[in-house]
């Protein structure tokens, strides 16, 4: 039963979200024109279809316990080819993934304060370490030179205004831009 519940869980989540969004769609405020469908019609239609597909999957997986599923052509071709490794053969590293996601969120939160260069040097180096890479020279050189190259390409060549950060970190960004001859 637990297996069935696990298989059905993504569909239950999507179904609940669809039901909630249907409620929200019912509250869309618009000037109704007689004889014309409103802006709520399209999203509501999609939500109904989404709900129906989810109900089918929930009944199939949870209540009947059926595992048959019609695959798209590409899926079928890849499976038939036998060149796709089965899931069971692959080792999983959930801690690496969690570390990667947390690091990415921290980068997004801190980039406006640290500035692009400092935040990126730290992110690249830590990402490689979390990704189980241990050649420290390559990590140090590629994260520093890589960040410098990105700053140069995007601010000098492509004209993207990357975040400079706040004091005292912005002093580093401003000094770098001055050295590179970038006007901001």
């Amino acid at each position: 039963m637990l297996n069935r519940l696990l298989r059905a869980s993504p569909y239950i989540v999507v179904q609940l979200a669809a039901m909630y969004l249907y409620q929200v769609a019912g509250r869309i405020d618009f000037p109704a024109a007689p004889g014309r469908i409103g802006p709520d019609f399209w999203p509501k239609s999609i939500l109904v279809l989404l709900g129906l597909v989810c109900v089918y999957e929930i009944i199939k997986n949870l209540l009947i316990g059926e595992t048959f599923t019609a695959a798209g052509l590409l899926e079928k071709l890849m499976k038939d080819s036998g060149e796709v490794e089965g899931e069971e053969k692959q080792r999983s590293y959930p801690l690496l993934l969690a570390g990667g996601i947390v690091l990415t969120v921290i980068y997004v939160v801190t980039i406006s304060s640290l500035g692009f260069f400092l935040a990126t040097v730290a992110y690249l180096a830590l990402f490689m370490v979390i990704g189980r890479y241990r050649n420290w020279t390559v990590i140090a050189v590629s994260s520093v030179l890589g960040s410098l190259a990105l700053v140069f390409i995007f601010m000098k060549v492509v004209y993207v205004s990357l975040p400079l950060g706040v004091e005292p970190f912005s002093a580093v960004s401003l000094w770098l831009l001055k050295v590179m001859g970038v006007h901001w």
Partner: peptide
């Protein structure tokens, strides 16, 4: 029908995309 994954999963993915567009 031609892509990867099961057809129902692809349909759900598509409808989520259509919803995001709204």
């Amino acid at each position: 029908s031609l892509g990867g994954g099961s057809i129902t999963n692809a349909a759900i993915s598509l409808m989520l995309g259509l919803l995001i567009a709204t």
